[in-house]
Every structure is written in structure tokens, then in C-alpha cells.
Computed example of a mutant assay.
Amino acid sequence: MRFCSIFISLFILLILYSSLSDASRALHKRVSPTPISSNPLPSSSSPVIMATLSSSVNNNSSSSSMVNSTQQDNPFAGKPTSASFANNMPPAYLTWKTPIPNQTFPPLYKIGVSNITLAWTADPNALKVQPMNLTIALANPQKQTITATIVQGTATEAYWDLATVDTPLMVGYYTVLVYDQRGPKAFPSPGWLMPDSRLLVALYSTEAYVGRSDSMFCPSCYVGSGESMISSMIPLITAFGVAMLTSIFILVSLLQ
């Protein structure tokens, strides 16, 4: 009986010892620190860095494309206002978009009514210097120059309202002049804009009809002119007939 009690007590102690060992192991696993990686940055930071770099590259490329697009749309923008280049580089010439130059049939505009729209561009590869300003002037048939407007050097269009012109305009052909701050007779310089005078426009005006009442105007003078002409020809025809009959009588008498 005593032996059984000792055996049962040893069995209970063994079970308690086993339970305490399992609990100690579990507690050790919970408290033990996580091993530190040799990589100083977490693995999740790599995609963030790559995304940041990619975003930066995309922003730079988009900014560059926007600058290129702006320069392509407006060849006058984004360039120095003064520079010198080699003599083997040609000057830049103006290209008209509206209206199209036509020396044979120039575009017509009515004085006091029309609004002239002028639009131009230039070759961005040839134009290397941005004008400080552009003057749009017109030379009338008597070679007198009228300044229509002065725009910024990056402008590509201008408007001239013929209804608000202070200077009286005559009917005829006008030469449109476009030049930068150097004037209309600037010497050709490499990379600079050449003065342009190839566009010709025609201005006209209409007047109300005014009836004539002077003594030199006679609308009914030629009424019945045919009858008066016939009556004036009758004496000539009569004289010619008498002369022919007389000649015939003389010839007959001579032949007999």
C-alpha cells in the first residue's frame, strides 16, 4: 500500500515536470527576439525607392516633352533675345498662315468694316533668337507706312480692325511689313528673323449712288438718234441717185 502511494506520487511529479518544461519552452519562444537581417533596409523599401525613381524619371520626361511641345507650337518661345552665330547659318524667314500671300489675287478687305487677322510662324531650326517685339505695319500705294500694331516677340498672330483706324485709308494695294526691334531694313543675321514684306492685301470701299444733275449729263439725248440719222441721210441718198442717173444718160448719149 505504501509502495503504491510512492509510485502514484512519482507519476504525478513526472507529469508536473513535463508540463512545466512545455510551458517554459513556449515562454522562451515568445520572448526570444527576432533575428536582425544583415540588410539595413527592409525588403519593402525597394519597391518604394524604385517607384520614386520611376516617378522622378517620368516627371522629368514629361517636363522635357512639354518644353519640346511648347517650342514646336511656338517657334519664337524659349530662346535668347540676343546671340551671335556662325556665318554659315542662314537667317529665319517668316511663313504666313493667314492670309496666304497671293500677288495675283490679293485678299480683299473692306475699309471701315473688316477685321484683318494675321497669323504667322517660322522654322524653329532656323530661328535661334527670340525677337523682343514684332511690329506689323502696312505701306499704302503711296509708300506711306501705317503702323497697325506692336506685339510681343513670342506672338504668332495679330489683329487690325479697319473700323477703328484713325488714319484715313485709301483704296488700293497695301504691303504688310513685319519686323523685329531692329527695324524694317535690318541686315540679315544668322539665326535672327528677317523682315518680311511678301504679303499683299487689297483695301476697297463702297460709296452710295448719287444721281447726276449737271448740264453735261443728258440721259434722253440719244433717244430717237436712229430716226435723226436716217433723216440726215436722205439728202445724201437723193444727191447720189441724181448723179448716177445723170452719168447713165451721158454714157448712153455718147454710145449712140
Results as ranks from 00 to 15, higher is better:
C4K: 08
L10F: 09
F11D: 09
L14S: 15
S18W: 05
S19M: 01
S19W: 02
A26F: 03
P35N: 03
P35A: 08
N39H: 12
S46N: 11
V48H: 13
M50F: 15
N60T: 12
V67M: 12
T70Q: 08
Q71H: 07
D73E: 06
D73Q: 06
N74Q: 07
S82T: 05
N87T: 03
P90L: 01
Y93A: 05
L94A: 01
L94T: 13
W96P: 10
P99L: 01
I100S: 14
I100F: 10
P101W: 02
P101R: 10
F105N: 14
K110S: 05
I116C: 04
T117H: 13
L118F: 08
L118T: 07
T121E: 12
P124T: 07
V129W: 11
Q130R: 15
Q130S: 15
N133E: 05
A137Q: 04
L138I: 07
N140P: 06
P141M: 01
I146M: 09
I146F: 10
A148N: 04
A148M: 06
A155E: 08
A158L: 00
A158P: 00
T164D: 05
T164F: 02
D166G: 11
D166F: 00
T167R: 06
M170G: 09
V171G: 01
G172C: 00
V178S: 02
R182W: 06
F187H: 11
W192P: 01
W192G: 06
L193C: 11
D196Q: 06
R198I: 13
Y204W: 05
T206C: 01
A208M: 06
A208H: 07
Y209R: 04
Y209L: 10
C218L: 13
P219K: 07
C221Y: 15
Y222R: 12
V223P: 00
G224I: 00
E227H: 05
S231E: 15
S232G: 10
M233C: 06
L236E: 10
L236I: 12
G241T: 14
L245P: 04
S247Q: 09
F249P: 00
S253W: 07
